[in-house]
């Protein structure tokens, strides 16, 4: 059956206006539900960013023995550079470490130290904190290596915390998405139930299921899109609000570490709008199914 875009557009506009109270209800349901979903996704992304930020600061240090000769030191340095899971390495000479120790140790402790007895070191940043263990396993006990040190217990705690946080936010987003889906489906169903007579007349005069379904799906799509655009705007506002609290002069704060880039915000908003459009159109198609089975 030829189904013109003109017919669908006309029916959609007429029905949206005629059932405007239901339309407003559906749009608000989509907007509120998806704003919550978007906020949860935003927090999940923020937690992920904070994790990356913290991961960037994780260092593993390979201390060379004071007695290590040049070739041993060179071998360790070149091997570290070749490791694919090590992001960057810098060599700290005995003199540099000596000066650093001076700032870290108490005068009493420092007095026992000389440049010759101070170990040189390689300070490396692994791609992921868990690779610190791999660096440890690789270099501990190698010729010329005094010891390999990294904040293993802190890394472990941080990883666990971030993983839990991410799962919490993802679960909240999924639960909210599910409840949003049910709420939206119910609203659409109520709207269609109010028009079941119209559907039965359509069936009676020989309309195919697609002929009946498409204007409803188009209505759902429009409702979903309007609602999700409102939700995306709310997410945008929330992001701006959080960013206004994140002080760049104090990068240690969680809010600063969680801040999202413009693209990440765009991605979250895109997902929100996509979900809204899908829930609206597919939800309508599902909701109308039982009324078509005549």
């Amino acid at each position: 059956m030829p189904l013109s875009a003109d017919y669908i557009a006309r029916e959609t506009a007429t029905n949206l206006w005629r059932n405007r109270l239901m339309t407003i209800a559906a749009v608000l349901t989509v907007a509120v539900s998806l704003a919550l979903v978007g906020a949860a996704l935003l927090l999940k992304q923020g937690a992920s960013n904070a994790e990356n930020y913290w991961q960037r600061g994780t260092q593993v240090t390979v201390w060379m023995k004071a007695s290590a000769n040049g070739s041993e030191s060179h071998a360790v340095g070149s091997e570290l550079k070749q490791l694919p899971y090590v992001h960057a390495c810098s060599y700290h000479s005995q003199l540099a470490d000596y000066h650093e120790a001076k700032t870290l140790l108490s005068p009493g402790e420092f007095q026992a130290l000389t440049v010759q007895t101070t170990p040189a070191s390689y300070r490396c940043t692994p791609n992921q904190p868990q690779y610190a263990q791999a660096v440890y396993n690789r270099f501990n006990g190698q010729p010329g290596v005094l010891k390999v040190s990294a904040p293993f217990s802190q890394i472990h705690t941080m990883e666990e915390t971030i993983t839990v946080l991410q799962w919490v936010f993802l679960s909240v987003a999924l639960v909210l998405l599910l409840s949003a889906g049910v709420l939206i489906l119910n609203t659409i169903r109520m709207a269609i139930f109010a028009r079941r007579r119209e559907v039965s007349v359509m069936k009676l005069v020989g309309a195919t299921n697609w002929f009946i379904r498409l204007p409803f799906m188009s209505e759902g799509l429009v409702q979903g899109l309007i609602g999700s655009v409102v939700a995306a705007a709310v997410v945008f506002g929330l992001h701006a609000l959080l960013n206004s609290f994140a002080n760049p002069n104090n990068p240690g704060t969680v809010l600063y570490q969680m801040r999202l880039s413009g693209w990440e915000l765009f991605g979250t908003d895109f997902v929100v709008v996509l979900i809204g459009a899908l829930i609206g159109s597919v939800g309508s198609a599902i909701a109308i199914r039982r009324f078509l089975d005549v």
Partner: peptide, 8 residues
Amino acid sequence: AFALEVIG
């Protein structure tokens, strides 16, 4: 007209 529109 609806009866005719429905059948295209």
